[in-house]
Design a protein around this nucleic acid. Structure first.
Lengths: 335, 335
DNA sequence: CTGTTAGCGCATTCAG
DNA sequence: CTGAATGCGCTAACAG
């Protein structure tokens, strides 16, 4: 491995001079600067970021922790985060918690030992509290994405889950649906709680009495257990429409319905939170509340970098991004 | 920041002893081991991976370079890579080249200075040659994914593009289509060349004379210019079916057709390479040649880790993964 | 079983 | 404008 000492020797200067040339710091005569540069190229010198970080106490690394890299919402978010990071000279250390607190904890430990400059943290849920606290204890700046964690005061970028849910359910009500089921994420997650509230609000505004036998509390990726859906369909007064609290649940619901020989929207109307990325465009089908995922990542990263670089005031910031109702063809008026 | 010296002092031992406790190396009396452990916990000590890497010359970091994080094929691949990496104790440094050689080069420079242990490299295309060479020159182990680069001898995990393409086109021919267009990626990319070959082979096997006016050479993400499609449709003898060389192109094609008031499959049959991840399941629509994306990532990572850890022989390995024809409803027999 | 010395590659002092 | 000494946090090699 080529070091600054190799360069220094061959260029007939001290290592310090080489360091200064690399960092464009201090005053160096144009002549030696050129000579040093030339030697660096000849020897294909590449600065060792490790050594540099060890002394500067700065890695230019930011950890992006998300819960599901398979979900288009998070990949689009990751894209926004990466673009913003690259622009500011940071690289992304990637981690995928799988909605699993233990895995999340493992990654937090790794993050801590890696000495990243900050963390963009999409938490698995309320229990992420301890993991976030761990970061705080070690003074690692972070920004929370998508899900608010009770008891954690930090910069946060959120979607308006309540309103998005309301819009979706109101759309169903406007089509005449009265028996509307909610297939929800875990109550351990703020967005799931808010979508539940929005759902109830819309019902009440529509003069419909909420019926908790129509509400399933699963997890955002847990549509394996189809018996839950089975029970819904076996009710005396079964739903005519289903609101899935995110895109993955909608996939599960629709597949299950299909296995039972039921078609969307003919036999059941379905809407959901979050769109499907590029795939959503090819066969406009599901009516969704689409969130600006790219902005989640981009804005979150900007907030984080401001924190890291000390450009932010002490007060934490809370950004709430609206969702957009995109009406397609997965619902049908009740005749 | 807490260091081993803080621990050493408080535990009344030398720093070296602490280091040995951390690494479970050398012989330490159970008693001191416990004492040291206790102090570490009290002080919330976390080893500094930077310092450790600087001396061990090992970062336990692997860079994953892909061309499009928005494409479900690559996110699923990333998932496979991440799972395999985590299992072996490596973390992922993430990079997205956007099919852009310059961006790719930027990231290679970053990769080099970060001293990652290896790179999982999904190249933008043939011109990635120089970037790969750069890695070779600096002795960074890497595995090439998805696209073969002429002149680069390395472990590689590929899909069978030729056969996949042939299957798709044969499917169309079986339905009576004779005028079959190919909307292809750049000829700079091995998979695009092979899909073109497979397409031609299927035509010839079907007794159809290839007609290059039916072939569009774009880029895998470049379906902005719809005039190209316009020309196809204006031909004296226009196509009745389109083979899009990847999923993103299929999205563009279908959107363009729709803007022109043409429906799939009624007015035009469409098939493509690569599926759409979870979204592909919700409304089975596009007939595709689906590749085992997760396996690409997982196997690639395994090969890479073997290389890094010296468990691989010198000979480079070449893994070819088959694709699966999934017939859905985006094609229709020619009446 | 434990400690001392030296050095990984670089940048921050402080002197010239 | 340039250089020498020192240390970032840790571990390999050698001593004891």
């Amino acid at each position: 491995m080529i070091t600054i000492y190799d360069i220094a020797e061959k260029a007939g200067v001290s290592a310090m001079t080489v360091s200064r040339v690399i960092n464009n710091t201090g005053r160096i005569s144009e002549e030696t600067r050129k000579r040093v540069r030339k030697v660096m190229e000849e020897l294909h010198y590449i600065p060792n970021a490790l050594a540099r970080s060890l002394v500067s106490q700065k890695t230019n690394l930011i950890s992006l922790l998300i819960t599901d890299i398979t979900n288009p919402f998070y990949t689009t978010l990751a894209r926004g985060a990466e673009d913003a990071a690259k622009k500011a000279g940071y690289r992304l250390l990637f981690a995928n918690s799988d909605e699993d607190y233990e895995k999340e904890k493992d990654y937090v430990d790794m993050i801590l030992s890696t000495r990243v400059d900050g963390v963009l943290f999409a938490p698995a849920g309320d229990h992420s509290h301890d993991n976030l606290l761990q970061l705080q204890k070690h003074q690692i700046p972070f920004v929370v994405l998508d899900r608010e964690i009770p008891g954690i005061d930090a910069d946060v970028v959120l979607g308006d889950s309540k309103e998005g849910a309301r819009n979706l359910v109101e759309h169903l009500i406007a089509q005449g649906h009265q028996r509307i089921a909610l297939v929800n994420g875990s109550q351990d997650v703020s967005t799931a709680r808010l979508r539940y509230i929005g759902y109830n609000e819309a019902l009440q505004l529509g003069g419909i009495t909420p019926d908790d036998s129509l509400v399933l509390h699963l997890g955002y990726r847990d549509f394996h257990d189809e018996t839950a859906l089975h029970e819904l369909l076996q009710l005396d007064d079964p739903p005519t429409a289903i609101f899935a609290a995110n895109n993955m649940l909608a996939v599960g619901v629709i597949q299950s319905l299909r296995q039972r020989g039921l078609q969307v929207p003919r036999d059941m109307s379905v809407v959901c939170f979050d769109d499907f990325g590029p795939a959503g465009a090819i066969n406009p089908f599901l009516t969704v509340a689409s969130q600006p995922a790219y902005q989640f990542g981009k804005l979150g990263m900007q907030l984080l970098i401001e924190r890291i670089e000390g450009a932010a005031s002490d007060a934490t910031r809370r950004i709430m991004l609206p969702s957009e109702l995109i009406v397609r063809s997965s619902t049908q008026p009740l005749s």
